[in-house]
Amino acid sequence: MTLTASHRPPLVAEVTAKLRALIHSGEWPLQQRIPAEPELMAAFGVSRGTLREAIKALAHSGMLEVRRGDGTYVRATSEIAGATQRMYQDHSQEHILEVRVGLDTQAARLAARHATAGDIAGMRELLTARRVAWLAGDYAAWARADWDFHVLVAEASANPLLHELYVSFGVIFHNDLLRQQRRGGFNGLPHEGHGELVDAIAGRDEAAAVESVTRNLNSCAEWLQE
C-alpha cells in the first residue's frame, strides 16, 4: 500500500486564505473592524487557536491590525499594500510624489493604448463626482473620487501587476492628497492629469497622456516646494 501526501493545505493556511479573500474582495472594507472571534470560529469551524494564528499571519503582513481591547481592523487590501504602508509611512510628500511619477506616467501610457469605452466613461463620471464634491466642500468625497479616478486609469492599463502596485499605495496617496488639500492655495480641480488625461486616453494619444500627467505632477512638486 502506497501512502500519498495530502494536497490539502494546513488548516491555519486555509483559514488565512479565507480571511485574505474576504479582505481582498472588499467584503471587509478598509479601516473597518472584522467580526468577533466567536462568529469567525463558528463560520470556519475552527478553534480559537487556529483562528488567532491566521489573524496573526495577516497582521504580520500588514493586512490586519489587532487593537487590544477593541478588536481587529482591516489595514490593507493585500500583503503588498500592507508592506507598502510600513515602508513609506515615514517618507516625505516629495518622495511619494516621485514614486507617483513612475506609476502614473506608465499607467497613462498604457491606458491610452488599452482603455475601453466603459473605462473612459467611468473616468469622466468620477471627474464629475470629484468636481461636485470639491465645490460642495466635501473634501473626503473629493479625495475618494480623485483616487478612484487614478485607480481606474491604472486598471485601464490592462497590466494587472501595475494596477496592483498602484492600489497598494492607496492609503498613502489618499492621505497625502488630503494633507495637500489642507494647505492654503491648493487647487483641487486641476485639468492637467485629469480632464486632459481622459481626452488623451480617448484619443489614443500616448504621448499626450504622459505629458498631461507629467505636467500635473510637476506642478504638484513645485507647489510643495513653495
Rank of each mutant, 00 (worst) to 15 (best):
G69Q: 13
R67F: 07
P190E: 05
A133N: 10
D148A: 13
G195E: 11
A21Y: 05
E206D: 14
A209G: 03
M87I: 12
A76G: 05
S219C: 03
L152R: 02
N175Q: 15
A208V: 04
E65T: 08
M87L: 15
A13C: 04
L224S: 10
L58K: 04
S78H: 11
A121I: 13
G71R: 04
R52L: 08
K56N: 05
F169S: 08
G203I: 03
R75N: 08
A112V: 10
L110P: 00
R86G: 11
G71P: 05
E226S: 14
G203C: 10
S25K: 07
D119Q: 07
E27H: 14
R33T: 08
L135E: 15
Y73W: 07
D104K: 07
H174E: 09
A57R: 11
G193H: 03
A209R: 00
H95P: 00
A140N: 10
D70E: 13
H60K: 15
Q32P: 01
R52S: 11
L103Q: 06
Q93N: 12
I172R: 04
Y139E: 13
T4F: 14
G188D: 09
V15F: 06
G82R: 01
L177H: 11
I201L: 01
M1P: 15
S61K: 12
V213T: 11
H24T: 14
M123S: 03
T16V: 04
A136P: 06
E79C: 12
V171N: 00
D176F: 02
P190R: 02
